[in-house]
Amino acid sequence: MSATRPPMTQKGADRLRDELEYLKRVKRPEIVAAVAEARAHGDLKENAEYHAAREMHGFNEGRINELEAALSNSEVIDTERLTVGSRIVFGAIVELVDLDSEAEVTYQIVGDLEADIKQNLIAVSSPIARALIGKNEGDEFDFTAPNGVKTYEIKSVRYR
């Protein structure tokens, strides 16, 4: 029995590949140089610069491993090619209206690793995304938010 591969948008995969390239080609050599310089300062037991550089190296290598695993295990989905009409699936850009306050918000449903609420990118596994999946433009739904139940209308659904 094979597990399903987590989805990721093409844009998210490209962003993670760019970060991976930066960590390998720029950050890794900088850290190696910092470790070598700190090592040259002598006694490693009491050399805070050396220990800080080694710790930075560990964090960087850990992030490189995380990105490589995510990119190799994910199923990259080109959301521009989806033909699902106004039904909400992974990759949808959804404009919502809070029916109580009339406030509008737009989210894109993306993979877990590419989610960034500051950019209105919500993880497919998040409660709001799970509430949206399968619904259509024009639908209304209730969502239990931390500050109580909210009723939303789905104003528009698009893919790009």
Score class of each variant (00 low, 15 high):
Met1Cys: 13
Ser2Ile: 14
Ala3Asn: 14
Pro6Trp: 08
Pro7Tyr: 13
Met8Ile: 10
Met8Tyr: 01
Thr9Phe: 02
Thr9Lys: 02
Gln10His: 08
Ala13Arg: 04
Leu16Ala: 11
Arg17Tyr: 01
Asp18Lys: 13
Asp18Pro: 01
Asp18Gly: 08
Glu19Met: 07
Leu20Glu: 02
Glu21Met: 05
Lys24Pro: 03
Val26Ser: 06
Val26Pro: 00
Arg28Asn: 12
Val32Lys: 13
Val32His: 04
Ala33Glu: 15
Ala33Thr: 07
Ala34Trp: 05
Val35Asn: 05
Ala36Thr: 13
Glu37Val: 09
Ala38Cys: 08
Arg39Thr: 12
Ala40Ser: 15
Gly42Gln: 09
Leu44Phe: 09
Leu44Asp: 10
Leu44Gln: 11
Lys45Ser: 13
Glu49Asn: 15
Glu49Leu: 15
Tyr50Lys: 09
Tyr50Ser: 12
Tyr50Asp: 10
Tyr50Pro: 06
His51Cys: 09
Ala53Gly: 06
Ala53Phe: 05
Arg54Ile: 14
Glu55Lys: 14
His57Ile: 06
Gly58Arg: 14
Phe59Val: 12
Asn60Arg: 08
Asn60Gly: 11
Ile64Pro: 00
Leu67Asn: 03
Glu68Arg: 09
Glu68Leu: 08
Ala70Gln: 07
Ser72Trp: 08
Ser74Phe: 03
Val76Cys: 09
Ile77Trp: 00
Asp78Thr: 03
Asp78Gln: 03
Glu80Val: 00
Arg81Tyr: 03
Leu82Asp: 01
Thr83Pro: 00
Ser86Arg: 07
Val89Ser: 09
Phe90Asn: 00
Phe90Tyr: 08
Gly91His: 02
Ile93Ala: 06
Ile93Asp: 00
Val94Phe: 01
Val94Ala: 01
Val94His: 01
Glu95Phe: 00
Val97Cys: 12
Asp98Pro: 07
Asp100Ala: 15
Glu102Phe: 06
Glu102Lys: 10
Tyr107Asp: 05
Gln108Arg: 15
Gln108Phe: 06
Ile109Gly: 05
Ile109Leu: 11
Gly111Val: 05
Gly111Asn: 07
Asp116Gly: 03
Ile117Met: 09
Ile117Ser: 10
Ile117Trp: 07
Gln119Ala: 15
Gln119Met: 13
Leu121Ser: 02
Ala123Lys: 09
Ala123Ile: 05
Ser125Lys: 10
Ser125Thr: 15
Ser126Gly: 10
Pro127Ser: 09
Arg130Thr: 11
Leu132Ala: 02
Gly134His: 01
Glu137Thr: 03
Glu137Gln: 12
Glu137Pro: 00
Gly138Ile: 00
Glu140Val: 02
Glu140Trp: 01
Asp142Ile: 08
Asp142Cys: 09
Asp142Thr: 12
Phe143Asp: 02
Thr144Phe: 09
Pro146Tyr: 12
Gly148Val: 10
Gly148Leu: 12
Gly148Ser: 10
Val149Ser: 11
Thr151Arg: 15
Thr151Pro: 05
Tyr152Asp: 08
Tyr152Phe: 15
Glu153His: 04
Glu153Cys: 04
Ile154Asp: 02
Lys155Met: 12
Arg160His: 07
Arg160Asp: 04
